[in-house]
Amino acid sequence: MELFQAITNMTAVSFAQHMVNGISLGSLYALIAIGYTMVYGILLMINFAHADIVMMACYFALFGITTFHIPWYLTFILTIAATALLGVIIERSAYRPLRDAPKNSVLISAIGASFLLENLANYLFSGRPLHFPDIPFLSSMIDLNGIQVQAICLFIPVVTLACLFLLLHIVNHTKTGMAMRAVSKDYEIARVMGVNIDNIISITFAIGSALAAIGAIMWGIRYPGITPYLGVMPGLKCFIAAVVGGIGNIKGAVIGGFILGLGEILIVAFFPQFSGYRDAFAFIMLLLILFYKPTGLLGEKMTEKV
């Protein structure tokens, strides 16, 4: 009854407004979730530092524009490149030396890398929120038949889907992608085929981090308060999105991202009295999926790698 009332009270315009917000938030979650799922697919580990890679990318873009006065479009390209490099450096320094160590050691190293990045950012950039610079047109509000949206919101889903298709093409139709899929199932035999698995793992981190950077830039334009801990909550939610979609599955991560983003926004829209619980939605989804379909929506049964 309450739901019915909530729905009827809502005009078409405000519903459309919420949908736009939900889809753009979901797209951002999807982009970041892909990074979690790719790394898990290949190394069977949760890259806790991924959330902080997002945060660093925000700072890269922010300082590129404000401090170094690089044109914004150039800054975005440099940010994507620098973030990809950061991901590769983290993999080489924190994960690669532990390649033959027990899985728990790598996990702890990932938590360490995450803390290091957060505290480094806190030390270097201060804990005060910095304002992400306004980008011409993208930051401005536009009016679509009464729906007020920030221009970036219209780009976010398009960019996300474009990234997804490009990524699926790489994974499914290139030699490198074939090697990535092979390494994810059996890295020893991949090695016997002549695949340099360290390279493939580096490429995986570079791609995941580049997508995180694209997500981070759009995140910054949409939510311009940049702090050293901004990655923490979205990072958790994106990890959950990856689990909900079926960890290791790229399409699953995107679907999970949309479910979480849309769900979070629509719950607040329909039940304003629950708006304090918006962050809880992701965790409830996690519990439900672990309870009813632990492999995730598109996930397959994973057998432990020997």
């Binding site: 030699k175 074939m178 899929r181 092979a182 199932k185 035999i189 085929m193 002549g194 695949v195």
Partner: peptide, 19 residues
């Protein structure tokens, strides 16, 4: 055997020629 189960038959042959 350890063929790559998630690759097609053709891809398994192609990865044999990886280098």
């Amino acid at each position: 055997r350890r063929v790559f189960p998630n690759l097609t038959v053709l891809e398994n042959l192609r990865i044999g020629a990886y280098l």
